[in-house]
Amino acid sequence: MSAVLRIESVSRAFGGVYAVRDVSLTVAEGETRAVIGPNGAGKSTLFNLISGHLVPDAGTVSYGPRGQWRRIDGLPPHARARLGIAIVFQGARLFGGMTALENVMVGAHARTRHGFLAGALRLPGQRREEAEIRADALAALERVGLREWAHRAADVLPLGQQRSLQVARALCARPRLLLLDEPASGLRAAEREALAQLIEGLREEGLTTMLIEHDVAFVARLADRVSVLDLGAHIAEGTPEEIRADEAVLTAYLGEGVS
């Protein structure tokens, strides 16, 4: 399988403390990659280095959908979004004062062709595009089970639904690489199941997904491969079965009750 993301010797420190230290990993096209590790292992930092919200102190991040490789570690986040990288943050990072549907529609910004003026003047081409985006946004809401919330204010949604709304917003961008930072936290059992099925569906469609998750059963079910971070270092990588048997991983998790 060809690769889509290559991270080489990436480090990032905050105030002299390494959050991510000399991490190298490669993600294959169409793969679902879980990133696990104890709290403070640097998982979210790693995602932010991929999305561009953080810049590495050292190392390179290269992105190559369909073999078109380019270094992206110098690009700002909006430029990376336009290359097809979408992220769902751990916290509820929604656009307040807008409906759920509008939030998802803004998610399509990365692939809009029509410029600012066309939108402000509501030129015909832009209106057509806006109608398409609206349809896509409704479909994305349907997919995460929020169709009936479309016209409600996004900030009144329960926390779990706000996360799902972020997933819909990311899907509306039609990404090539989807980063999900603990998408299942705060969800009830039925909602977790729905999310798992959604992620499975995305894998069947060939979408490359990276997933930060604590729940071992969830990871074992969804992930093709697992990367384990501990204290900023990439200590192990393999299939979920291999990782379960890995000595270094067990040591890292000791005391967390995971076996």
């Binding site: 979004a81 529609m105 402000a120």
Partner: peptide, 29 residues
């Protein structure tokens, strides 16, 4: 009309509401 009814108005408002997420969806804040 611009801020409440047009798509660019929404994109502009998104920047103020959550610049972090706005960047993530491809908006050059």
């Amino acid at each position: 009309l611009f801020f409440n009814r047009s798509y660019p108005g929404k994109a502009l408002s998104a920047c103020a509401s959550n610049p972090y997420a706005a960047r993530a969806v491809g908006i050059d804040v």
